[in-house]
Write a protein that binds this DNA or RNA. Structure first.
Length: 588
DNA sequence: GCCGTTTTCGGCCCGACTGTTTTCAGTCG
């Protein structure tokens, strides 16, 4: 059964949506939503646990009831309650929840009083103002709905981290130039380094004007909505402003909150989230007889921490939790015990082990690639051009590879005082798990990044076999972008990562977090599972030309979300340790 | 529906803004 987790997460999500529209118990809805999230985050396929209610209920956030439903699904492929719930609503109704500004109450109203059963029905009715007759709806609300539907159609999906981060940095820079702005920062899922971002959250600290308390904040939001890329203003209050910005392909919503410098830390914490992390922190505050909101941590209505995030965490009895770990996946317990990992940072990376030159589809000569890597402060660069099957990427034939190795050795010798240049290859893992070059040739290389490039839609069982077989080739050093996915574009393979990771652990080789913002493959959850199994990670940019090394930050954020320290990452090893590790992965 | 170093019952986070209202419900994050 492929992707039991994905299917189950979707089922619980749908049940929650239906219950919302039916005004079901709020806490039951929450429980279903939480179950969906927890299941989606699980590294192991639930199908591999099997329909064992007791075993499933051990998972945090999943109780007996949900476990029984999961077991039922694993047994029969269905959850009866899901079908029963769905039968109570027109099929097209839950989808309306995705429209911004349209919630369960209004959807129920539209359905019961206007006979609307789908998005198409709603669009048809919105061509006139007849819906304004309904209680609670007016012409303005209808106009906003029209806009939201249009927005949902043009943007549709979340934007990639690599699209959102540069825009956010630019916006923060603009905000800092406004007079009176003390601090400006981006928050939200972007700060947590998630692979895709729903909207950009910005926080600004503004020194209040004693005579006109609201005026200072007003000046920021006035300047903000006038920024050139802003296309729509959704909300404009004294402390909260929301706009839409048109991107190249996607529109994105940007929310701005203005606070005083005294509240900046509490606000940054609050708006960085995640929602689940915040809920857990607030519960912790309550347990300690305190309250936490976006302005401060308070005891007896007196603020006791608010200026910095560090202050708030400290007063809650926690060590500082980096944004990338704030997902309520156990980080709060670790912070209570002062056992949080010291996360890997960008400057810890000292080597690039996956990069291309103009011998295949890159835009650098070997020498330029090496010098660029040296400029970044790397002690080692591996040249890993494509193998022969990648004809479209000008992959190297056996003969060309032999010549290429010579050329790399020559540059390596020339630059040996500057940087260590390794001869490698990004070798295709063919559909059956064999490699694209014979072992006699792989033996001549310093390292082999084995990657899947084609046949990415094969069955999970086949994909698992394929990767495991490749890993057992004695010359493979790193598995590059193991699933081959492209975010928002291609799903890639869905192998049983547990088996792939176990094979990598047995062989002592590394799995890649490809830092290219289209890939981020391994993702955070699988990288976490790799770390837990003692597998080393390789964070590589897969650079093809100038500027590509700047993608490294996306790989770092993904690794941080997995809880990686520099001890988990081969690219953070000192030169001698790295060379030693590379040798240890292959036959003597 | 989940959960428990005060609980197996009775809790379950908090505030801003909008549009529609005569004081607030709905939505969002």
């Amino acid at each position: 059964m492929p992707n039991a987790n994905k299917q189950l997460a979707a089922l619980f999500e749908q049940m929650a949506a239906v219950l919302e529209i039916l005004s079901g118990d709020r806490f039951r809805i929450n429980a279903f939503q939480r179950a969906a999230r927890v299941i989606d985050d699980l590294p192991d396929d639930l199908a591999s646990i099997g329909p064992d209610v007791k075993e499933i209920a051990k998972i945090e956030g999943i109780g007996k009831g949900t476990a029984q439903r999961i077991a039922q699904f694993l047994d029969t492929g269905k959850i009866k309650e899901h079908a029963d719930l769905l039968a109570k609503l027109p099929k097209g109704l839950p989808a309306l929840l995705d429209i911004s500004g349209l919630g369960p109450k209004t959807i129920a109203l539209l359905w019961k009083q206007a006979g609307i059963e789908s998005l198409d029905d709603l669009k048809a009715k919105l061509r006139t103002d007849e819906l304004a007759q309904l209680p609670g709806l007016g012409t303005k609300k209808l106009e906003n709905l029209r806009k939201s539907i249009k927005f949902a159609q043009t943007s549709g999906q979340r934007v990639r981290l690599g699209q959102a981060l540069p825009l956010a940095l630019w916006l923060v820079d603009q905000l800092r130039q406004i007079q009176g702005v003390k601090h400006a920062a981006y928050a939200g899922s972007l700060r947590r380094g998630k692979e895709t971002i729903g909207d950009i959250d910005l926080i600004v600290a503004m020194q209040p004007n004693p005579k006109h308390p609201d005026k200072a904040a007003q000046a920021v939001s006035d300047a903000f909505v006038k920024l050139e890329p802003v296309t729509d203003v959704l909300v404009k209050g004294p402390t909260k402003t929301s706009v839409r910005i048109a991107g190249d392909k996607h529109a994105i919503q940007v929310d701005l909150r203005v606070v005083t410098p005294d509240s900046f830390g509490a606000a940054l914490l609050y708006f960085t989230g995640s929602k689940e992390h915040n809920v857990a922190l607030r519960q912790l505050a309550i347990d300690q007889g305190a309250r936490l909101n976006e302005y401060s941590l308070q005891k007896n209505d007196r603020p006791i921490a608010s200026r910095t995030e560090q202050d708030v965490y400290k007063k809650l009895g926690l060590t500082y939790i980096p944004p990338t770990l704030r997902e309520d996946r156990g980080e709060i317990t670790l912070a209570q015990k002062d056992q949080l990992p010291t996360l890997i940072e960008l400057p810890d990376i000292k080597a690039e082990l996956h990069a291309h030159t103009d011998a295949s589809d890159g835009r650098w000569s070997i020498r330029d690639l090496a010098l660029t890597a040296a400029e970044r402060g790397f002690h080692t660069i591996a040249v890993t051009d494509h193998s022969r099957s990648q004809a479209i990427a000008n992959g190297l034939s056996n003969n060309r590879l032999e010549q290429h190795v010579q050329a790399i050795r020559s540059v390596a010798d020339e630059l040996k005082q500057t940087i260590t240049v390794l001869a490698g290859s990004e070798v295709d893992i063919l559909a059956d798990g064999s490699l694209d070059y014979p072992n006699a040739l792989l033996k001549e290389l310093d390292l082999v990044v084995a990657s899947p490039h084609s046949g990415l839609s094969q069955e999970p069982a086949k994909a698992t076999k394929r990767l495991v077989k490749a890993i057992h080739n004695p010359y493979v050093t790193i598995v590059g972008h193991p699933t081959g996915r492209l975010i928002n574009r291609r799903q890639g393979m869905s192998p049983d990562m547990k088996q792939v990771i176990a094979a990598a652990a047995e062989r002592g080789i590394a799995l890649e977090i490809n830092a290219n913002n289209w890939r981020l493959d391994l993702n955070d959850v699988n990288a976490r599972a790799a770390i837990d199994a003692g597998v080393m990670l390789a964070i590589d940019t897969d650079a093809h030309g100038p500027g590509d090394f700047d993608q490294l930050i996306y790989g770092i954020l993904t690794a941080q979300r997995a809880g990686a320290t520099k001890d988990n990452v081969v690219n953070a090893m000192p030169r001698t340790a790295l060379v030693k590790w590379l040798k240890a992965t292959r036959p003597a």
